[in-house]
């Protein structure tokens, strides 16, 4: 039986990788992948704690997260493609028309 804190450590590690990737990378696609990593870190946490607490609510919630992530990925990729068509780039520093 793997203890709970291993799962939590794994989750924290994956989350931190996601945060680092999101802050450090300038490529929109990679930033997007980093967001997915963070979401999945949360999912690991949810499932592990759900198992530990013997309560299925956490696992159900993780399904919701996966669904929402899928939808978000679809829309996000669509926006990225639209941006690429317009600007011929996926580098976020080039995309700052909205600055004050």
């Amino acid at each position: 039986m793997v203890p709970l804190y291993w799962y939590m450590l794994l989750s924290a590690a994956v989350f931190c990788i996601g945060v680092y990737g999101f802050l450090a990378r300038r490529n929109v696609i990679l930033m997007f992948i980093s967001i997915e990593l963070m979401l999945n870190a949360v999912n690991i946490n949810l499932v592990a704690i759900s198992h530990y607490m013997e309560d299925l609510a956490g696992q159900i919630l993780s399904f919701f997260v996966i669904t929402v992530a899928a939808a978000e990925a679809a829309i996000g990729l669509a926006i990225i493609i639209a941006l690429f068509r317009n600007k011929e780039t996926v580098h976020v520093d080039e995309m700052k028309e909205m600055q004050g």
Partner: peptide, 18 residues
Amino acid sequence: FIRHVQNGLVHRYATVMG
């Protein structure tokens, strides 16, 4: 004066948010 906060750099926003 306040408009300078909004500089259009996504990772700056993310950092502030974090």
